[in-house]
Design a protein around this nucleic acid. Structure first.
Length: 578
RNA sequence: CGGGGUGUAGCGCAGCCUGGCUAGCGCAUCUGGUUUGGGACCAGAGGGUCGCAGGUUCGAAUCCUGCCACCCCGACCA
């Protein structure tokens, strides 16, 4: 490609609203162009990067017996009503009507569509297991798109769906996908990518893993043990917290006027927050009241609690609701509550601690020396669970070493769905005994644009992206300095043609700009190898070869340059696959 | 959805407080010339519903009201 004709202008200044490296470089380098909040067009070099990522994904999906299909973006609402998600999913699902007033949706994911595709096509156990995938646009009406290509409304996603007779078959296949994902992210050049246990959330199912590209701009928080043996999303992360039981002291009511918060109470009584019990009241989606009790120094992990109470949403309960069960806001404890009006869930930290300060369910009073097994009569009816949010430095559940917190961009996730969709949507097959059975499903996604942005986050310098060869928009960039001087243009043209003939992808800067100008643009384009053709080197019958990100280049004879460079490129490409 | 901020040429911004003639600057673009190893220089040119609508006024980019869009923090995020 001749740069004089390339569409996608480079911009010298950072866009004012870009805060992340990938956002700045992808816009400045002429890879993408925003068209509305969270909606982007791709310029030619951005499109080339995306195509390469997609092709790597294709190769790896095909290698685990995936069959590529293509499902539509616009779907009839009736399909989503069948699965129940038309009503259960919030405003991220863009709903609209067509000219006949028929309800439609823009697909934000394709479980419904794939079930529709498969349920009439697979009807025998002989056809299982099977996996189909596609690479398609998704639309999610995000409340707040941000960070350039990291959180957008419209995006390209590879999603794959597998169908099985048995959970064993799903487990086995899930493992293969897991390994394929590790290969994909390695091949695209994400060198710091963690696969971690995650919360399946509203997707349903019981097992899921996320693939996290580690980057400071990531939205997810991940806890990792120093040796890497434990890694988990904050939503599910736990720790080997140690608690101490000591001799029970006598329960004592104390006057604590106006001391409602843990800080106030512990300071007022000269205690540490870990010697207190915190009461947090939530309202579920069904308007039920939940009382979570946890030690004062912990925070309730709402993801964990949601799972326990089976509610997709939790809100803080209002004071009237809290009082209705007999508790006093700011001074609450589980003692004496009306358990028909509130579901009580006790964190391990409370169950295993002694002599805590808790509320007295009476304004301006607390109890000292609360011991749950002695002082809470409803203990048998209550649930004890892990509700705590992990914190940096907490002991790793495997090794006991302090956990580290990292930020990650979720570039992929995989779920064991089970029969949630198959049952709801009659996706059945006949087993060996001629009996109809619901198919067991897995689903597996990768965000393509996010992957591109994540690579930039992990591989760049001050001047632009440093693309791994596997997804670089071009393999080689030729900069022709002073093309009007004798022999320069001719040599550059010749090199360009020769490299193309050898199957190398070449971006040829034939604009005749000043050297610095072209070098800056080349850095922004991030092509891994650069060849400078200039009067200086041509005099000696040589060109200069340089690796992006390295300081010095080497001089190569003009005649041998195409062959030598092609060899280097092909070797690098080969290595990137293995 | 709550809080904050910003909308002026393709990009980045000034002007607004204290209303006034033809709305400026840098980059980018076009023409001509001189340049050419890390974002050159000279001369000239084109490019604007000042986010939208209404209001106040002799007169509005500027003041007032409403709306919209975008960005940031939070909530949410299959």
């Amino acid at each position: 490609m001749r740069m004089s004709k390339l569409i996608g202008r480079k911009i010298k200044e950072d866009p004012k609203d870009a805060n992340t490296v990938s956002h700045k470089f992808l816009i400045r380098g002429g890879y993408v162009r925003p068209i509305s909040a969270g909606i982007y067009s791709l310029f030619p070099i951005g499109k080339r990067v995306v195509d390469k990522i997609e092709n790597i994904i294709r190769e790896e999906m095909n290698a685990i017996d995936g069959q590529e299909v293509l499902m539509p973006v616009v779907l009839p609402a009736e399909l989503w009503k069948e699965s129940g998600r038309y009503d259960s999913v919030g405003q991220e699902l863009l709903r609209f009507t067509d000219r006949n007033d028929k309800d439609m949706v823009l697909a934000m994911t394709h479980e419904e569509a794939v079930v529709h595709l498969v349920r009439n096509d697979i009807n025998s156990y002989k056809q299982l297991p099977a996996m189909v995938y596609h690479i398609q646009t998704k639309y999610r009406d995000e409340a707040r798109p941000r960070a350039g290509m990291i959180r957008v409304r419209e995006f390209t996603m590879k999603d794959a769906y597998s169908f099985h007779e048995s959970t064993e078959s799903l487990d086995e296949y899930y493992e293969r996908v897991f390994e394929a994902y590790e290969r994909i992210f390695k091949r695209v050049g994400l060198n710091d990518c963690l696969s971690i246990k995650a919360d399946p959330g509203m997707m349903g199912g019981n097992t899921s893993h996320e693939f996290m590209a580690i980057a400071n701009c990531g939205e997810d928080m991940i806890f990792v043990s120093p040796d890497g043996r434990y890694k988990a999303n904050r939503d599910v992360a736990t720790a080997a917290w140690k608690y101490e039981k000591s001799d029970m002291l006598e329960l004592e009511k104390v006057h604590t006027p106006g001391k409602e918060s843990i800080e106030d109470v512990s300071e007022f009584l000269g205690m540490k927050p870990e010697n207190t019990g915190k009461a947090v009241f939530f309202r579920t989606i069904d308007n039920a009241l939940v009382f979570a009790m946890i030690r004062g120094d912990f925070e309730v992990n709402e993801s964990k609690l949601k799972k326990i109470v089976g509610s997709s949403e939790l809100e803080y309960a209002d004071d009237d609701m809290i009082r209705a069960c007999g508790a006093e806001p700011g001074f609450a404890s589980p003692m004496g509550l009306d358990t028909t009006k509130v579901r009580i869930i006790i964190d391990n930290s409370i169950a295993n601690s002694a002599n805590l300060v808790v509320g007295a369910n009476e304004s301006d009073y607390h109890y000292k020396n609360f011991n749950i097994e002695r002082d809470f009569e409803g203990l048998e009816g209550a649930e004890i669970a892990d509700l705590a949010t992990a914190r940096e430095g907490d002991p790793c559940p495997i090794t006991g070493e302090p956990l580290q917190m990292k930020r990650g961009i979720e570039v992929g996730n995989i779920f064991k769905l089970g029969t949630k969709y198959a049952t709801a949507m009659n996706c059945n097959y006949l087993d060996r005994n001629g009996k109809s059975q619901a198919m067991i499903m897995g689903c597996y996604g990768i965000g393509v644009g996010r992957t591109m942005a994540s690579v930039v986050e992990q591989s760049h310098d001050n001047w632009g992206p440093i693309w791994p060869i596997a997804i670089a928009p071009y393999h080689v960039q030729i900069c022709s300095l002073n093309p009007k001087k004798e022999g320069v243009k001719e040599a550059a043209d010749k090199l360009y043609d020769a490299l193309l003939a050898l199957g190398i992808e070449v971006l040829y800067d034939d604009r005749g700009e000043k050297a610095g100008f072209m070098f800056k643009d080349a850095d922004l384009t991030g092509v891994p190898y650069r060849v400078v053709v200039s009067p200086k080197s041509i005099e000696q019958g040589k060109v200069e070869f340089k690796i992006r990100g390295e300081r010095d280049g080497e001089l190569i004879e003009c005649n041998s340059a195409p062959g030598k460079i092609a060899e280097i490129v092909k070797k690098a490409l080969f290595n990137s696959k293995n």
